[in-house]
Design a protein around this nucleic acid. Structure first.
Lengths: 295, 295
DNA sequence: TTTTATGATAGAGTTTATCTATCAGAGAGT
DNA sequence: ACTCTCTGATAGATAAACTCTATCATAAAA
């Protein structure tokens, strides 16, 4: 069976006349005759009653018509949807983001992304780096934003921007009196996130220490609450500065100005690369020096 | 676009592998490659992301999939329905019946028709002869039962059976005392149906008179009520005898044994002829001498 | 680096659809 | 009764499409 033949059928019924239906379909009358006879033969059902005054549907044909129309409507829908999707900057786009970034980046950029890429339906997905990359490779995500450089050869990435780290201290902390903090001093009572968070490894690396306080915090917010309660210090990424400050923490730049580089990652062969690039550009534009205004 | 290509698409997505999908479709692998590339070109959208480990749907493709599945499901439905309709004694069958017959014939035969032709969905339609024939020719009915012989050359018919006329009298009527009634005597105070009912013309013809009492009855039931109330006499078809008797009328055979012949009519070119013939046979079998048992 | 797996490509062959030209049948009008 | 006209069916040629086998290109795995 063929969508074309179904269109022929509807045309003949609509016009009640092979010749006019053929004209409407842009083919010759014998074409319709032959194809519709074939359709009847294939289905094993008489669909048309051919009279001298024109053509009419048989009862069987009438009972098939709803399905015929539905099939053609679905085909139409496919083409209409495809027309919309023809713009590479359109359609669903599942974007993974690490948890230490998502709550602080998304509010800043989502509205702007919608404005700049109105046809791209961005669906954010928050998870740890490893899970994100796994999902990305499993085609469960179109791209993701992480703070490390993926080493898998089937993934490509481009840097978005460097996000400075800031020392986060309780107001009463001795280091809070200085304009900046040296990493080694911070290392003494630093609190870090649970394993799997790239920020944990980065904080420890920045402070040149192997382990922080034996606390298990699974979110940056928890970590900041712990610091505010005086359990220790921590390192937070700049985009989280405003949230930290609202919780009463004192933020100080690091003496070395360490930062993490956020990257957008996608599959090397992904046809969504244009969309990914556009998303990257937009995020860069929308967050440019965002932390400077919030420091 | 083509249903076949949509099936190819689903197969490739299901197997995640062109070769295995091709095997499942019973074609060669290059066929799938070529056809799916064409489909992508036609839609202008990348549907597949081809990787060394297999194939995956793009986000665009995923957003099309519901429509793809729906289109194929509708095509399936057409074929399934056609398979059912392949039996000529199946499917919808709109059957017109004249009003002086329908209420008395249908209760006798409908259950039997369902039993004998279980797949034929008979939809009765009650109307006057002229309307029925008009609808029949307009393909709004598959067949109809009337009591006259249609003279249109594009209609065919076959007789079902002869239905005798009976004189219907109020119990107090002088003619009620005799075993049978001569038409001329009945003619004096005969009540007939409104114009358009074939029974009106037949009653007048049987009684060899030009006009009955100036009463306008649009149904046999009304007519029988009038007779029961003593307004006059009438002629009723045998199948209505039981109903008339229940209303207290006295029924007498006519001296000449006049009757009307019921016929099943269908379009000469109708592919529903087998169903019509079967319906005719069934009606004959189911009503054979039905009035004898009710006289 | 070789091997293996996978999809893409080329060219031939086959099937299918379409066209033009013509036919057959039924009404309509004379 | 006899054309004339309208309508769909049919035949044969042509064109388009699909599909095949054989082979290639690429990338991951050994």
């Amino acid at each position: 069976m063929n969508l074309r033949d179904l269109r022929y059928l509807l045309a003949v019924l609509e016009h009640g006349h092979f010749g006019r239906a053929a004209e409407a379909c842009g083919v010759s009358q014998p074409t319709l005759s032959v194809q519709l006879r074939k359709l009847e033969a294939e289905l094993g059902v008489a669909l048309l009653e051919r009279g001298a005054r024109g053509v009419a549907a048989t009862a069987a044909c009438r009972s098939l018509l709803p399905h015929v129309r539905a099939a053609l409507a679905e085909a139409e829908a496919i083409q209409a949807q495809a027309r919309r999707l023809r713009d590479p900057l359109s359609g669903p786009f599942r974007l993974g983001i690490i948890p230490t970034l998502a709550p602080y980046l998304l509010p800043r950029v989502l509205a702007g992304l919608r404005a700049r890429l109105p046809n791209l339906e961005i669906e954010p997905w928050e998870d740890l780096t490893d899970s994100l990359l796994e999902r990305l490779r499993a085609h469960d995500l179109e791209a993701c934003v992480i703070a490390t450089e993926p080493d898998q050869p089937d993934l490509l990435s481009r840097p978005l921007f460097a996000e400075p780290f800031l020392a986060a201290l309780p107001p009463a902390h001795p280091l809070a009196a200085f304009p900046s903090v040296a990493q080694e001093e911070l290392a003494r009572d630093i609190l870090v996130l649970a394993e799997g968070h790239c920020l944990r490894d980065q904080a420890l690396a920045v402070c040149r220490t192997a382990a922080g306080q034996p606390m298990r915090a699974t979110s940056l917010v928890t970590l900041m609450h712990l610091v505010a309660a005086g359990y220790g210090t921590t390192l937070i990424p700049a985009l989280a500065a405003a949230a930290a400050r609202e919780m009463g923490l004192v933020l100080k730049p690091l003496a070395t100005g360490a930062s993490r580089t956020l990257r957008l990652v996608w599959r090397a062969r992904s046809p969504h690369r244009p969309a990914a690039e556009a998303v990257a550009e937009s995020i860069i534009a929308l967050t440019d020096r965002a932390w400077e205004t919030s420091c």
